[in-house]
């Protein structure tokens, strides 16, 4: 009698555990799938927004650069000069200093400490000649 009851109420623990593990694994996998799918969607939306911002910044950069180019162009500056907006003073000879080096007739000469008369204003040089 006792043995029969024991046999009738036996719980297949091993099988149950196995099924519980499988079910748990499936549930976890399903949840992970949903979580990652959701995460992917959120990240995708963030990527799309960031791409939009980046594109807008690039566009703003291009607009600013085009504006700078326009405002710093020769023709625009000439126009502003003609309108009297910009005042330019011609550089006179007394404000030009040339460094005269022996044997150098043209181009931008290099500085040298030798010779006291190497640094001379253009006006003085013309007077001296």
């Amino acid at each position: 009698m006792t043995n029969r009851r024991r046999h009738a109420n036996i719980v297949p623990v091993a099988a149950l555990v196995r099924w519980v593990v499988v079910a748990f694994f499936l549930c976890t996998a399903g949840l992970c799938y949903v979580y990652f799918k959701n995460q992917m969607q959120t990240t995708g939306t963030e990527i799309r927004d960031l791409e939009g911002q980046l594109s807008a910044l690039r566009t703003q950069d291009d607009i600013a650069r085009a504006q700078i180019d326009r405002l710093s162009s020769h023709s625009y500056l000439e126009r502003r000069l003609a309108e009297g907006f910009i005042q330019l003073t011609p550089i006179t000879d007394d404000r030009i200093v040339r460094i005269h080096l022996a044997g150098q007739s043209s181009g931008t000469p290099t500085a040298s400490a030798e010779g006291a008369d190497e640094f001379q204003t253009e006006a003085n040089r013309i007077v001296a000649q």
Partner: peptide, 13 residues
Amino acid sequence: EQDAERIYPAGTM
């Protein structure tokens, strides 16, 4: 859609 128009800052120069 993105596009661009060509500008020539130097004008006639």
